[in-house]
């Protein structure tokens, strides 16, 4: 019997199914918490000066975005294979002429679509609240300002400088790249995990280790005199895990620093390379796995 769909159609069918499944699980309810957090934060911070208010609003919103996206990425990816095994849907899919790497690719794309949509919704909400607050502060400044036109223009420019800046967009793109990497890493872990809980716990550990990878790398390459096994352990951590601190640029971006284009593209590329790498390892592990 000839295959009815091309390879990409099969992948997109699985991806669409995975995405629909995640939506049905009401993962987007988390976004409600995010919106409450951003709006609540904006109201709470109104008693500070506008510079402090905007600074903290951006800090909290981008921090919350990073937290929610990482959370989504781990939970959604860790439960994909265990749930399919539990529901036995995996047997229905893999008994058809669907290669395992296509199955994994479909699953990963489904999660990435969900992460992309979440990033867009959270980003849109955050920027809307930020711009609305900016407009409100600009209006207050215009109405209450006493001074020359030149001084008023300078005061308004100061408000605009403190609120929205275009660097927030690449900051959010980098958060998405980090979440994609985590999703791929978690998918890889779930291919050899014995249960969903195990996959979640191991992925959370990998998340923390990833943030300490830079320290492990410096410890390994720094020439510190330590036991050989200690050096070996640091080397293993530095080589196997990604450097997640490389994706934590939003802390400095909200401080008003311009993100150089080469830093942005290299960070995105690093995220992409790790996402592909972990996907390939996931395929290798899943290929011969007994179901």
């Amino acid at each position: 019997m000839s295959r009815r769909f091309s390879s990409s159609s099969r992948i997109f069918a699985i991806a669409g199914n995975t995405f629909t499944d995640l939506v049905r699980q009401r993962v987007f309810l988390f976004l409600l918490i995010f919106s409450l957090m951003v709006i609540g934060c904006s109201a709470l911070l109104a008693k500070f000066s506008f510079q402090e208010e905007f600074q903290m609003l951006k800090d909290v919103a981008l921090g919350a975005m990073s937290l929610f996206l990482s959370f989504f990425a781990i939970l959604a990816s860790a439960m994909l294979l265990p749930r399919d095994l539990e529901d036995r849907t995996i047997f229905t899919i893999l008994s058809k002429p669907v290669p395992r790497h296509e199955y994994l690719m479909g699953k990963l794309l489904g999660v990435l679509t969900m992460l992309l949509l979440s990033t867009l919704i959270m980003g849109g909400l955050f920027l809307t609240v930020l711009v609305l607050r900016e407009q409100s502060v600009l209006l207050e400044t215009r109405n209450s300002f006493v001074g020359s036109q030149q001084e008023l223009a300078s005061a308004l420019a100061e408000v605009r400088k403190s609120a929205f800046n275009w660097n927030l967009i690449p900051a959010m793109v980098i958060l998405f790249a980090k979440a994609s990497l985590i999703a791929s890493l978690t998918l890889m872990i779930s291919t050899f995990a014995t249960s969903g809980i195990f996959a979640i716990l191991t992925s959370v550990s990998a998340y923390f280790i990833g943030h300490l990878q830079e320290t492990a790398r410096e410890y390994w390459l720094g020439g510190v005199t330590v036991h050989w096994w200690s050096r070996l352990f640091s080397a293993l951590l530095a080589l196997v895990f990604p450097d997640l601190q490389a994706f934590n640029l939003s802390d400095d971006i909200v401080a008003g620093k311009g993100l150089p284009l080469d830093v942005f593209w290299q960070t995105i590329a690093l995220g992409g390379v790790y996402t592909i790498l972990y996907y390939l390892v996931a395929c290798f592990l899943f290929q011969k796995r007994e179901l």
Partner: peptide
């Protein structure tokens, strides 16, 4: 690894991290 180290230096020179 060399890429990661280079990126780290690039970040630091741009006053990140």
């Amino acid at each position: 690894l060399p890429w990661q180290i280079e990126l780290q230096h690039l970040d630091r020179s741009a006053h990140f991290r």
